[in-house]
Design a protein around this nucleic acid. Structure first.
Lengths: 339, 339
DNA sequence: TTTTAGCACTCGATTATGTCGTTTGCTAAT
DNA sequence: ATTAGCAAACGACATAATCGAGTGCTAAAA
């Protein structure tokens, strides 16, 4: 356990470093509130905090920098969560009240709003489609060889896709197909759209393969697509830690790895808001970054995940306040209730 | 007019510089084919080419670098267009034969294929929707307050959108709406979906505003959206000219400017393949880049544009060969005919 | 007249050297 | 327990020195 003054010193160092990105000297924080003592005293405290691994020194004659442990302590114990302004609250409300027609859109709007306010990069992924239950399927004949399939799920997700055939189809065929598919799939998990169903329809119900195969394949494809949406990808490049070309490239490459991003957003959701600091990230590539995530859900239905990625010295207080607010707004707001 | 040896020298310098990104010395090209003379002779030729503005010198004791004029001459007169390999041809064929269901998809596939083969960044934009003629409109009731609208155009473009209402709607209403919209819009340019139509339907045909307004607004919105698709955005960062953080950031920012990208792809289509070298670009921001574009079209119908963006010393021979090949494949291939 | 060998000169890149300022850690006094 | 004072550490920055690739010119050779 840290005594009161050590807490103050740690907090001051973390906050100063978050702001300046420069190692923090004993002088720099001497005048912080709650620290009315000389720089020498602070140096002693700093030496002890370093021994306890809350702080690190880039080299002998530099100031101190928080370690991952230091940030962690700060996030868990010291940070104040009211770092969201009235303007920001207003801005968020405006953004989220925009009428949207697709459930995925609201996640993206939330994501981009967070990026705008915090100036970090955000990632939004759509709901895990595997968990969805089919509520309804519509087939629409577009022309003699094209049909559109629309899948509605219990969470309000709408997936549509165009299906092309090698032979002409009729309005009548579409009708019976529609009936058939709804009959088999209504109330079923979306994963049922798969080979076995194709086999059943062809073998048992003696539909033509040429008809069924493209439908199943295309529907399966569109249902499995995962949507990843990046926002403010270039924002981090403005930060001083990305002044080295190496680091900048590394970051850009990370963003390119869709897989990694998806994985990153899908690890552990113990709490409402999840914070991973530097080495706490499972992925080696992310050890220089911090990540904060939350899930957009109604009840226990997953509607998508939003994550923010920034430097280890990210402004946790701000980020967490904003994300908590938006999370509440999204997850509380079920359909109605403004402001 | 350049004499034969000057052409050889210019060509050698351009090609060497394209490969190495280093100023080319008289020694370096001494042994190129067609240049069996001493470095001193080459130096004299280089001095003259510089006087004629085909070459530039970064500083006194460095080799030469092609000017925009030099590149232009190379592209127009010297470049050999057979720099596409059999493997590449095969790879392109495979990619393009993938069944796609959306006309826009094929443009994107072509775009990403080009990026993969050339290692530059490519941009694809969808067709100019304004020019499209409406062939058919379908309305599908999804649930009591949601409808999907599907618009088919003469070029095979399919645009769909979800429309939400504040009041319940019935299958019947959807039917009459469908009839009405098709009646008014079939054969009309897509730009007719606009305020005047809304006004007409509400005022003259006495439909409810609550019904018509969301439909028109949403359809208008989806029709006007321009799709811009980037591929290989980070590829250029590997090139030596992007080793300076300044340039790299600048490049990333350019890619961020969707407007700029769209503009860039929409300037002048005098030829099949259009090449803009450095300062030839209208936009100030692009003066350090070269851009090669072509239009995907069937007959005189615009189906989208594909552009490649790279350094001024881009491998024009390769890029142009590849783009010519793909362009022919896309624009020739109307629907059928494999290989 | 054209080509080429030879050579002085230019100039950026790289490396070495020196100086400065910040910050620490320790000691001794408070 | 705190603090003033001071030597030592060390990166950052500026300056100087060196190196070498490449040119342009001159004069000789073809």
């Amino acid at each position: 356990m840290l005594d009161e003054r050590k807490k103050r010193v740690l907090q001051a160092i973390v906050e100063e470093y978050i702001q300046t990105a420069e190692p923090v000297s004993s002088n720099a924080i001497m005048n912080c509130e709650g620290l009315e003592c000389s720089s020498a005293t602070i140096r002693n405290e700093m030496a002890e905090l370093e021994k306890m691994r809350y702080l690190e020194k880039p080299h002998t004659s530099a100031g101190r920098v928080p370690s991952a442990k230091g940030y962690r302590y700060y996030v868990d114990e010291l940070l104040q969560e009211d770092k969201i302004t009235l303007e920001e609250i207003k801005y968020i409300s405006e953004k989220l009240e925009n009428k949207v027609n697709q459930i995925e859109e609201i996640t993206q709007i939330a994501s981009s709003t967070i990026s705008e306010i915090t100036h970090y990069t955000t990632v939004a992924i759509g709901p895990n489609t595997n968990e969805q239950i089919i509520e309804n399927i519509r087939f629409v004949l577009l022309n003699s060889r094209m049909m559109m399939a629309v899948i509605l799920t219990d969470t309000g997700l709408v997936k549509e896709t165009i299906i092309k055939f090698d032979e002409d189809i009729t309005e009548n065929q579409v009708q019976t197909l529609s009936y058939m598919f709804n009959n088999k799939l209504k109330g079923q998990p979306i994963t049922k759209i798969d080979k076995p169903l194709e086999k059943y329809l062809v073998d048992e119900m003696s539909y033509s393969v040429n008809l069924i195969k493209p439908i199943i394949e295309q529907m399966k494809k569109v249902v499995e697509e995962e949507s990843i949406h990046l926002e403010g990808a270039t924002r981090l490049l403005e930060l001083p830690e990305f002044n080295s070309l190496e680091v900048a490239k590394n970051f850009v490459n990370i963003l390119d790895e869709k897989e990694l991003m998806a994985d990153m957003l899908n690890t552990g959701f113990a709490k409402d808001i999840n914070v991973y600091i530097g080495e706490e990230n499972e992925k080696e590539e992310l050890k220089d970054f911090s990540i904060v995530t939350f899930k957009h859900r109604i009840g226990n239905k997953d509607l998508g995940t939003i994550g923010i990625i920034g430097p280890k010295r990210m402004d946790y207080a701000k980020v967490i306040s904003v994300m908590k607010y938006i999370s509440k707004k999204l997850n509380g707001n079920d359909t109605k209730k403004d402001e």
